[in-house]
Simulated assay, not measured.
Amino acid sequence: MRLDIITCLPKILESPFDQSILKRAQQKGLVEVHVHDLRDYSPFKHRQVDDYAYGGGAGMVLMTEPIARCIRHLSEARNYDAVVYMTPDGKRFDQPMANQLSLLKNIILLCGHYKGVDERIREKFVTHEISIGDYVLSGGELAAAVVADALIRLLPGVLSDETSALTDSFQDGLLAPPVYTRPADFEGMRVPDILLSGHEAAIEQWRYDQALARTRERRPDLLKED
């Protein structure tokens, strides 16, 4: 997979991709992440990428020219399966969407900023619009990092135990069950006996029951029950 992230604030994205799983995935050659400074594609002397909105009102808007130049430049080298715009009014990002996008090869993540991008960019270039929640961030950079993390960890070979991603919350429509590690007794709080029993089938049933109970308590909206 190759991820190209377009942003006017590239330094925000330096740290997330230089740590832990995301860094190792790049070192293994399983994913390429390229961050592009939108100001490098500005046609203006002072690298301007934003302007006032037509019709007035507070806030600035990212202009068409720099974004179009960047996308077209990238598209000269390869075909992109998706151009994703990170925006609060996009479709809510969830695990099924992450699973689907993780199957793609080349993806552009476009980070909004200020009041967002000129609507004509959305109409002409964008194939997917994604929101990570019903709130507003200062820009799309952190949202893009969230989406990238969710996709990359699903790629074969990224996690040392590839079954780990399959048992995460939301993969089966349920929250994950409680997990425990050593010591077996922490200040009088014991690990459930079933987890120490070695009875694999019983343990799996316990985990399912716990996941179902936790989902019913915390996220009943995930359960499609009559």
Rank of each mutant, 00 (worst) to 15 (best):
I6C: 04
A53S: 10
D168C: 04
A143V: 03
T167N: 13
K91I: 14
N106Y: 05
V191I: 03
Y135C: 01
G198A: 07
M63V: 02
L109K: 13
L74E: 12
A201K: 13
H34N: 15
S75N: 12
K23Q: 01
Q48G: 05
R24F: 00
R218D: 04
Y54R: 13
I152Q: 02
I67T: 14
I5Q: 03
E32S: 14
G198T: 07
D221Q: 03
Y41G: 03
Y85H: 15
S42V: 09
N99T: 02
S164M: 05
L9W: 11
K11R: 15
E76F: 02
S164P: 02
Y85R: 11
E200H: 14
D134Q: 10
Q26D: 04
P178A: 04
I132V: 13
H34V: 06
D168R: 03
T64H: 09
D168G: 05
T7P: 00
L62Y: 10
G55I: 08
L166Y: 10
S15I: 10
L196T: 09
K23I: 01
P96Y: 13
V31S: 00
L175V: 06
D221W: 06
I6T: 12
L62T: 13
M189L: 01
L222P: 01
Y85N: 12
H73R: 11
L174F: 09
D18H: 07
G56R: 11
G157E: 09
P10M: 07
L13S: 10
F186M: 12
R153S: 05
D149W: 08
L9E: 08
K11N: 12
V83E: 05
L222Y: 14
R182S: 05
E200W: 11
P192F: 07
A68Q: 15
C111W: 13
V33Q: 05
